[in-house]
Write a protein that binds this DNA or RNA. Structure first.
Lengths: 205, 205
DNA sequence: TGACTGATGTCAGCCACAGACATGACTGTA
DNA sequence: TACAGTCATGTCTGTGGCTGACATCAGTCA
């Protein structure tokens, strides 16, 4: 098992993040990254289906966390409670120590539209998978799709807040708080006089 | 104004959709599309920033429709009411006659991940713009972001339903119905016994 | 020992896309 | 009429993302 240096993917990912952060994403070629860890461009593309993907591995772990939260929830949980359970479970994947790394990674993504596209796509795939899980648990349409997409949406907003400078709450706390806010927003009197929502708490509070 | 054939962009778009639909997206080169309307590849890329973009023009119209709905809403409308207004306004952009064209276009997109990425990205950009509009109207965070993303999310789901075979309701009807469903889902008793959501109406009903 | 496997290298090629410059209507103006 | 300016287009050339085909070669297993 030591025929070649192990952890090739990880070394490529680390080198890629380094180079992207220092030199910029577009200014870094796939060959640069490969060369940085003593490999060839061709090998890079054997490990990652495309150049962007080197920043987006580990998606499966996130998906599994969401799914795990749903599976572990009580049998009679309502859709939005399943979403809450999923968010809690996913939040555990991002302890405080990971915040700095996430920040660096996100700063790279935020500078490049192509990377933002991929990020959205991943989030969207996550929502699709959650939707499948909800339907498998018997949640009907369109509730399953709405709840699943809401989960992805809340996670995305929560994550963005989590890595904001000065933010100290855990990802789970932020996510659950956003979910509560959404419930307040959506559940509000449909009649139409909820000026109250204008003075809602700040996400950063 | 007739120096060159007018409507170059539109002719390129039509040719692209044709070729993508018959031959497949990846099997169609930018040069193929250009040639189909008597132009060169270079000219194609002067009209569209990249190959995918030829399928995604007209985004501005959609954005404007959403924004128009928000602007026209009563001063004291709650965030989710603004979302409803935006959805109504956007729905008008897609009358029944456009359904078939939308279906064809979507069938191409559904077959190619790269195109799906771009589609999500556009929807996400739309949500961002809506968020700005909501904040400009005084909606606080995180309500503005949540409402804006919800608008994009509902629009996306509604659109997918609108082009489903057999669907006959208008896009606006579907969108408003989904929004109502979301409000029911989210607003439901947070206590945790809404088994009722399992028998919610089908989107296709 | 020898067949086999699996990660890697090498080579050649396609295509998306971009910069630089030329062209050839057509327009406005003197 | 002539001449300069504009603008969409063509031409040429180059880079980088990505792929298929084939070779290599260390280690594994029969």
């Amino acid at each position: 098992m030591v025929r070649w240096q192990p952890g090739t993917r990880e070394r490529l990912q680390a080198a890629a993040l380094d180079l992207f952060a220092s030199r910029g994403y577009e200014q870094t070629t796939a060959a640069d990254i490969a060369q940085a860890v003593g490999l060839t461009e061709r090998t890079f593309f054997r490990h990652f289906s495309d150049k962007r993907e080197v920043l987006f591995s580990g998606q499966d772990l996130l998906t599994e966390a969401f799914l795990g939260g749903i599976t572990a929830a009580p049998e009679d949980a309502a859709p939005m409670e399943l979403v809450a359970a999923a968010l809690e479970s996913a939040g555990e994947l991002f302890p405080g120590e990971r915040r700095d790394h996430s920040r660096l990674r996100q700063s790279v993504i935020d500078k490049n539209p192509a990377l933002q596209e991929r990020e959205r796509h991943k989030l969207s795939g996550l929502a699709t998978t959650i939707g499948d899980a909800l339907r498998a648990r018997g949640v009907a349409e369109p509730a399953a799709t709405l709840a699943a997409e809401s989960a992805g949406m809340v996670f995305g907003i929560a994550f963005a807040q989590w890595i904001r400078e000065g933010e100290e709450r855990s990802l789970t706390d932020i996510g659950l708080s956003l979910l509560a806010e959404l419930r307040g927003l959506a559940g509000g009197e449909s009649g139409g006089s909820s000026r109250g929502s204008q003075r809602n708490i700040q996400a950063g509070a």
